[in-house]
Design a protein around this nucleic acid. Sequence first.
RNA 1: GCGGGUGUGGCGGAAUUGGUAGACGCGCUGGUUUUAGGUACCAGUUUCUUUGAAGUGGGGGUUCGAUUCCCUCCACCCGCACCA
Length: 858
Amino acid sequence: MKREKAMSRYNAKEVEAKWQASWAEHKSFEVEADPARPKYYVLEMFPYPSGRIHIGHVRNYTMGDVVARYKKAQGFNVLHPMGWDAFGLPAENAARDKGVHPADWTYANIAHMRDELKGMGLSLDWSKEIATCHPGYYGHQQKLFLDFFKKGLVYRKESWVNWDPIDMTVLANEQVIDGKGWRSGAVVEKRKLDQWMFRISDYSEELLNALEKLDRWPDRVRLMQQNWIGRSTGAHIAFDIIGEDDPLNIYTTRPDTLFGASFMAVSADHPLTQRLAKDNPAVRDFVAECHRMGTSEEAIEKAEKKGVDMGLKVAHPFIKGKTLPVYVANFVLMDYGTGAIFGCPAHDQRDLDFARKYGLDVTPVVSPDDQTPEIGDTAYVGPGRIINSDFLNGLEVEAAKAEVIRRLEELGKGAEKVNYRLRDWGLSRQRYWGCPIPMIHCAKCGTVAEREENLPVKLPDDVTFDKPGNPLDHHPTWKHVNCPECGGEATRETDTMDTFVDSSWYFARFCSPRADKPVERDKVDYWLPVDQYIGGIEHAILHLLYSRFYSRAMMQTGWSHVEEPFAGLFTQGMVTHETYKSASGEWLLPDEVDQNDAGNLIEIATGKPVTVGGVEKMSKSKKNVVDPGAIIEKFGADAARWYVLSDSPPDRDMEWTDAGATGAWRFVQRLHRYILENRDMAAAPGTAMPGEFSDAAMKLRKAAHKTITQVTENIEELHFNNAIARIYEFMKALSEYKFEAGEDGKWALRESMEVIVQLIAPMMPHLAEELWQALGHDTMLVETAWPKADPVLIVEDRITMAVQVKGKLRATIEVALNEESKRVEEIALAEKKVQNAIGDAPIRKVIVVPNRIVNVVI
RNA sequence: GCGGGUGUGGCGGAAUUGGUAGACGCGCUGGUUUUAGGUACCAGUUUCUUUGAAGUGGGGGUUCGAUUCCCUCCACCCGCACCA
């Protein structure tokens, strides 16, 4: 009997498979460039093929799918492709740990994840699928690299890496834990290696200025990029080193505080430090200590401010006879400015911490109130006038900066300088599973480009991961080639490219994914830029900035016409879940936890109570993950899609709860049941619209058309949770509708049923398609135009206005739309509750905001 | 440490961007239906000392009016250049 009841329910699994097959058969989402039609390019950040999709993917791709399906219904030629960010470290880890070849591991993962994505019913054009680890992709990436090289956008430079001395390998920052290698446990060293670099810093100003034009990007992302590029105006100052010919060049943004300088600080990697370290053990030890700190800016900034006096003195450029000691300090970054600063402790917190530690002078030179400020443990960084500074005294900070620069220029000891925080992009990785850099080192000719006819430079398949270091370097034959210039013996570059390179142009490749060159101009000219890009906020800076650089570089090499790859950007929040711990303190999967009869959470296996922890980002380590496959199996893809959209604003984190998913599933059942049980009461499809409607029918029609307007607006703004709330409201209005025998009532019912089915279609495409058919249509909903609201039906002639007395709500009144303010005031004051609230007090003022509110001030 | 963000009932959140705080959903309470229910339907649900008052993380300010703007403090989250 149980089965019988279940059979009468909507069978999501069956129905979803049916429509997925139907869309595939009809090639519903396969598109070609068609200049006669308006295009819309929807793209979600492509996934790393880890093996299984996670619920964050479900949320991300559902959002993109809603936009894609909606835009298609609006008549756009919609490109909505999918691919795989398939190079990267995890494949090599799997190779090392499990003995699987990275390619086999990756392609198996892709196959599985592709099936999972197909089960979600996404409107993807699978004929355009790409994987970055395929030579058909990375070969073209090598061509772009060579073009960039010829334009001078690529160069080689020594730079610092994390080096594991036992594994003999370069470590990613995340592989360095507390200064030690994650596998070997060896203390990590900083080491200098020759690295390939992209000249992104050439575009600093351009990348900064163009942010202004990205008006469909979140402000916070633009702000983060702006801060990352970090344009500052300051000064270069040359300090004469006592007893030496060459000066110490520093960069400062506060030249106005020059008279407050009490020491110089240079980076551990500064040439001066390197030179002095040779004869000075204290300096050498300190440099070694700095090199154990790791390469991340975070590690450097968080470390205690330390330094060593290197015994040198420099002369103050303006104070005769004053000298300043030169320290090597751990908080000075070689990559920023010149790698050297002057320290003015009174007006910089780091300098102050340093000065207090080493007993250096603290001289205030900026005063907020013309008094000499007391400097304790907090530096004064605010505005004010200059004091204790000779010719600068009395000037405001900005005027003082200009004046000191003018004086320095006169002396030939300095100049104004614009500086950027943005560094060139180091793309070399000493790893196997990445795109080979198509360069060859020849003893005679130097480093030369591989010939284009030899592209792609393919990765060798026969590699081993049992030896420390880079497998490409170990390979017996791969790197040995003839020089393309002289034909002599030479070796290939064994570095591969950063995976950020792969993801910096994939959106362009999607336009012509099988072309025999990186991109076809007519295709990118039609499709680019991406109209709506959707992905995580964690990519706010690097991936997006690198892609913006790549677009410009591709423009410069003639491949494209767009500066900005992503016209619209949306960053969705993460999916979170409660964490659970067993009685013995082990993390538990949500599936291992259930409620007992008393409503307490217990571990299913043991029956023991479970400790509920915080709601956190889903992570394998804390086991607070849900498996999308299991969710879709249980509730269907539509319910899962509906739920990830319904509860939280898309840019915020959402908490996954079982109850929420069940709620979505219930709505699926409810709508399905409603349409199937009541469709016979509705007019036949295609019936002509009656000339007149009863009040009830009219009320329903108004609700339907208002809902069309609201849902359309909500989807345009990507406020999917609000769209769903409006659909719920309309569902309520629909179920409260009393059926009428007349043709007008039947017609209104059909209209409303069709409207709700069309409005849910972007979110729940399978159910919508099924119900569309159930309503008697033999066309596919996926090919049906988006409903249009009748403007006549969405204007209300009477509205409710709130009446406040002294800012507090006392009554509401109903008035005509756009009623005269004077009349509104009369009606409001006549209200009994309003009069009670006013009492005997004299009315000082009445504020009437048309169609909104009345506030009586007493 | 630096940069960016978030904070509203028991829970997720809404609020036309300065104008009725709590839409919509979950949960809960009561009722109806059903052979049964982790079903369906109906009603209620911010709190309190309830003729009223308080209330959007805490404190202060601007305003006729503040979830919204300003100052300050607290908590949590994201990024920091070799994870993707």
